[in-house]
Amino acid sequence: MNLKKIIPLVLLLTSISFYAQSGSSKSKKEQIQSMKVAFITTELNLSAKEAQRFWPVYNSFDDKQYEIRHDKMTLCKVHLTDAGMSKLSDKEAATLLDKMENSEEDLYALRTKYSKDLREILTPTKILLLRKAEDDFNRKLLHQYRDKAKKK
C-alpha cells in the first residue's frame, strides 16, 4: 500500500476513534468533516495539485449548500407544525411555498456552478467517483449511527 493511501486511512481511523469519544456536537461535526475529507481523499486518489484546487471549491459548496438547506429546514420547522399550519392563511402559505421553491432553485443553481467549477479541476471520472464517495460516506455514517443507537 502506498503512502498516499495510508495517510488518509490513518486519519479516517483516528477520526472515528475521536468521534466515538466525543461529547460536544460542534466537535462531532468537525470530526465528521475530517472523516469525510480523509474518505474522499482516499477514494479520489487526488494529486497534491488537484487537492489544492479541489478542497476550497468543495468546502465552499458544502458550506453554501448547508446554509440553504438549514434556512429551508428552519422555515419548515416554524411553519409546518400542526399548530403553525392551523394559523397559516392562504397568502402566508403561498409565500412559504415561494420561499421553499426559491431555496430549491438556489440549490440547483449552486450545484450547477459547482459542477462547472469541478470540471476545471477534476476529470469527469473523478467527479463521478466523488459523487459515489459522498454517497458511500453518508451510508457508512448512517450505519455507524444505527449501530451506536442499537448498542445503547
Rank of each mutant, 00 (worst) to 15 (best):
Asp71Ser: 10
Phe18Ala: 00
Ala149Lys: 13
Lys64Thr: 06
Ser27Asn: 13
Ala149Ser: 08
Ala20Pro: 12
Ser47Glu: 01
Tyr19Ser: 08
Val78Gln: 15
Cys76Pro: 07
His79Val: 05
Ile68Arg: 06
Leu88Gln: 10
Leu75Tyr: 02
Leu97Phe: 06
Asp147Phe: 02
Ser25Ala: 13
Met73Thr: 09
Ile121Asp: 00
Gly23Asp: 09
Glu134Asn: 08
Glu92Lys: 15
Asp136Phe: 12
Asp136Pro: 14
Leu3Pro: 09
Lys77Ala: 06
Lys72Thr: 09
Asp71Ile: 05
Ala83Glu: 11
Lys28Trp: 07
Gln21Ile: 02
Glu43Gln: 11
Lys72Asn: 04
Ile16Trp: 10
Ala94Arg: 15
Ser89Arg: 12
Met1Ala: 03
Gln31Ile: 10
Asp147Pro: 09
Cys76Leu: 15
Ser15Glu: 09
Asn138Ile: 05
Ser86Ala: 10
Thr123Tyr: 08
Tyr108Ala: 12
Lys126Ile: 01
Asn2Glu: 13
Glu30Cys: 00
Ser115His: 08
Arg146Gly: 02
Ser89Cys: 07
Ser115Thr: 09
Asn59Cys: 05
Lys151Phe: 04
Gln144Leu: 12
Thr42Glu: 11
Leu142Lys: 11
Asp63Arg: 05
Lys113Cys: 05
Ile121Arg: 07
Leu75Trp: 04
Leu44Lys: 00
Leu88Ala: 07
Asn138Met: 08
Asn102Gly: 02
Pro56Met: 02
Lys140Arg: 14
Lys150Cys: 02
Leu3Ala: 10
His79Leu: 08
Arg69Tyr: 07
Tyr114Ser: 04
Lys26His: 02
Thr41Ser: 08
Gln52Ile: 05
Pro124Ala: 03
Arg53Asp: 00
Gln52Arg: 15
Ile16Thr: 09
Lys126Ser: 02
Lys150Val: 13
Ala51Tyr: 01
Ser115Ala: 06
Ile40Thr: 06
Leu46Ile: 07
Leu9Ala: 14
Val78Lys: 15
Asp106Trp: 04
Trp55Thr: 01
Met1Val: 02
Arg139Lys: 14
